[in-house]
Nucleic acid binder design. Structure first.
Lengths: 115, 115
DNA sequence: AATAGTAGGTACCAAATAGATACTAAAGAG
DNA sequence: CTCTTTAGTATCTATTTGGTACCTACTATT
């Protein structure tokens, strides 16, 4: 009976997801970090996810950091160096995002056609 | 060489995706239609994806219709009846969205913890 | 006659999101 | 002495998005 009750009131996973990772650049940034699968500097990431602005990239990275999907390492050098990397938790999204990217590649033409 | 050139300039699938299906409610609506896998009336869909407003649901459904992910069938009865259904193309997203929903269910606690 | 239900449309307003630009620090190159 | 580099922050504005409220048309019910 506990199970039944819990299931019926389970919050929609999709609503939770879009509340967690939202914004135009969120998925592209996260996917790039997952594909790279190594530490990457802020500037390099910005070039990879062009044409995102500095402000938006910073904001998204902080959001990912706060929920534990990304780590941030700051080196007090001059000029400054900051490196970002997906966490193990973040990497668990790889199969899902691979699937999404593959779907998009397969259906690009079908989808852009209608207008 | 064509292959090389094409690959290097391939638009990011993730950017394409977020441009195609954007908005707070897009994924929840689409996933609900996919899970239902049958025609569903506007009102029933709105109740299922609560608390979405009429306006937003209408807007999203029209967007999905325009790119061929959803069909709209209007019956000139009184009171009016309009039914929506995912297309075959839309159904091809099922495995990906299932995977996303599963990921979210598995990592809900981990993610909400950090604050 | 008044009300409810259906699937919207429309106008208005607020909030969230995104973009452009300028500014900072400290070191090294020229 | 100025320019460049890096990873931001601050400020301002523009665009997009979402919400509330109110409107239609027609039927059935009260």
């Amino acid at each position: 009976m506990t199970t039944l009750f819990t299931q019926s009131t389970e919050p929609c996973p999709m609503v939770d997801f879009v509340n967690l990772v939202s914004g135009k650049w969120a998925i592209p940034i996260l996917y790039r970090l997952i594909v790279v699968d190594d530490a990457i500097r802020f500037g390099a990431l910005q070039r990879a996810v062009a044409p995102i602005t500095q402000k938006e990239l910073t904001k998204q990275l902080r959001a990912f950091e706060s929920i534990g999907l990304v780590t941030r390492a700051m080196y007090p050098e001059m000029p400054p160096r900051v490196e970002y990397q997906v966490t193990e938790l973040g990497k668990t999204l790889k199969p899902t995002l691979d699937s999404l990217a593959q779907w998009m590649r397969e259906h690009r033409e079908e989808l852009s056609a209608p207008l």
